[in-house]
């Protein structure tokens, strides 16, 4: 093989074929999906993210939540995701039409989160869990995200959104822990993660 041209043409053709197959055709097939509108209720599924949810999504990305949490309910032969209660059905391309980037994830150090909003609708649980995961799950190896919260002196009455921390987690008397803007946005995003709607054929 002593011809530079032969090598060049060969590597061009082989790579173009894969580009067509793995980039262009999937785009043709999936690029035109739009959210489905429920004919009876008029609900749009999946619902578009609100502004604060999008900010929360950015927090999710910047703090790298997707390195330990997937966002997909798999089917397949062993098919255990449904039994774990991670969702009522496997996820489909429609579920991700609003997602940019799609955070399918590659690792399950922690549980799947695509339906965490449906599984865990409590604000308080999410805040306590983010402040220190060991408050809600004793053996958790998720890192604490104290930097999504603010420790401040109580002025007048305690804030309504101060965390109900007890025992060793409580701040010193006269202080309270409240979520900051990023913390609030993240919880808003987590609660929006709900792909339990029925997919219409």
């Amino acid at each position: 093989m002593n011809h530079g041209t032969l090598i060049f043409v060969g590597v061009f053709l082989t790579f173009s074929s894969a580009w067509l197959g793995l980039v262009f055709f999937p785009y043709q097939q999936l690029g035109s999906i739009t959210p489905q509108v429920d004919e009876v209720t008029g609900a749009v599924n999946p619902a578009p993210y609100s502004g604060v949810e999008l900010v929360g999504r950015k927090v999710y990305i910047d703090e790298g939540c997707h390195y330990c949490h997937s966002q997909q309910v798999r089917g397949g032969y062993w098919n255990a995701d449904l039994k774990r209660g991670w969702g009522p059905r496997r996820t489909v391309p429609l579920d991700y039409v609003n997602d940019n980037p799609a955070l399918l994830g590659t690792m399950r150090t922690g549980p799947d989160l695509i339906n965490i909003g449906a599984r865990q609708p409590s604000d308080e649980w999410h805040y306590l869990h983010l402040y220190n995961p060991q408050i809600t799950s004793e053996a958790s190896i998720m890192p604490p995200y104290s930097f999504l919260f603010e420790r401040r002196p109580i002025q007048g009455d305690p804030s309504p959104d101060a965390l109900p921390l007890k025992g060793k987690w409580a701040p010193e008397p006269g202080f309270e822990i409240v979520p900051n803007d990023r913390g609030r946005a993240l919880v808003a995003y987590l609660k929006s993660l709900d792909r339990t709607f029925d997919v219409q054929k």
Partner: peptide, 15 residues
């Protein structure tokens, strides 16, 4: 602050 990509959703995962 949010990226506006030409392709979104699961096609991104394929790419």
């Amino acid at each position: 602050g949010m990226s506006e990509a030409p392709i979104t959703g699961v096609t991104q995962a394929s790419v």
